[in-house]
Nucleic acid binder design. Structure first.
Lengths: 145, 145
DNA sequence: TACCCCCTTGACATTAGTGTCAGGGTCAAG
DNA sequence: CTTGACCCTGACACTAATGTCAAGGGGGTA
């Protein structure tokens, strides 16, 4: 599969695929004419990279846990595991918050619609009090290099 | 609470807080001397913004769903809701993938350790075959402006 | 009062991801 | 053989997030 088709499948630009490759994250084979060839494994890997990038990882960070990215090889993944779990917890926190906000928002909308449909209902918002806890992620000013 | 303390609580730099403010995401009050004052609501909001940014949203995207960000007000949030659910699904996909990869990685490590502790065990990796489906996010080249 | 630490705004620098273009090759269809 | 649609590399541009510095003010404490 050539780069344009692979990019289309992944929903990214060919430019981005080349960028991932340049960052050392992806190494598609080359056809005799020098064209990049993306096999199924390359597509899976690229999909993971694409998701990582889309979720706030930098290519350097992804590279740091590259061993965890490949389909095979349980090798030197321990190093990246900490980073991975750590980012996972960050994302979990956000997800939880997002879902909570989504729930309360839907409730508000439902209530709003209810208020509209029988306007004489004077029930006030009970105040559902979002979790006031401030989650503190570790400050990593910018990956040293 | 002044900016330095707020930033410390949130795990970001004062510079970033000013940046969020400049992007129209946050509006802390000002003390008589002109210093920014961050109340609990400001901290909660800033925490959400920080998480959004850390998870790949741009300030423009966050701004687009600003109504959904405040503690109160179920108002014009519908517009942002689509974006929000949409990104939520992206994140869900990644989370699922990450958790799956984490599971299999842990399995590999466990197996590796097992292989080490009794080296005469010649059992091969059964090949757990990660989901080959390539999830395709919608291609949004770059938010038009 | 002097000192220190915090604050303000504004400017400039850096980095990452990405778009886009130029100059040139591959290859299949007409 | 020409044409059109791909591909390649390399370069330049843009944007967003962030760091950092300069110039100056606020305010508590020795």
């Amino acid at each position: 599969m050539q780069i344009k088709e692979a990019a289309a499948h992944l929903g990214v630009s060919p430019r981005s695929l080349r960028h991932y490759e340049q960052a050392g994250l992806l190494t598609p084979t080359r056809d005799a004419n020098g064209y990049r060839h993306y096999g199924p494994a390359d597509l899976r890997r690229a999909g993971r990279i694409r998701d990582m990038i889309a979720t706030g990882f930098s290519t350097r960070e992804v590279l740091a846990m590259a061993p965890c990215l490949s389909d095979d090889g349980a090798g030197a993944c321990e190093a990246g595991l900490a980073d991975l779990e750590h980012k996972l917890s960050q994302i979990d926190r956000l997800i939880t918050d997002l879902q909570a906000r989504r729930r309360t928002t839907l409730e508000r909308i439902a209530q709003f619609r209810g208020t509209l449909s029988n306007a004489n209902n004077e029930r006030k918002d009970p105040g559902h009090d979002p979790d006031p806890r401030i989650a503190v992620p570790d400050r990593v000013p910018r990956r040293q290099r």
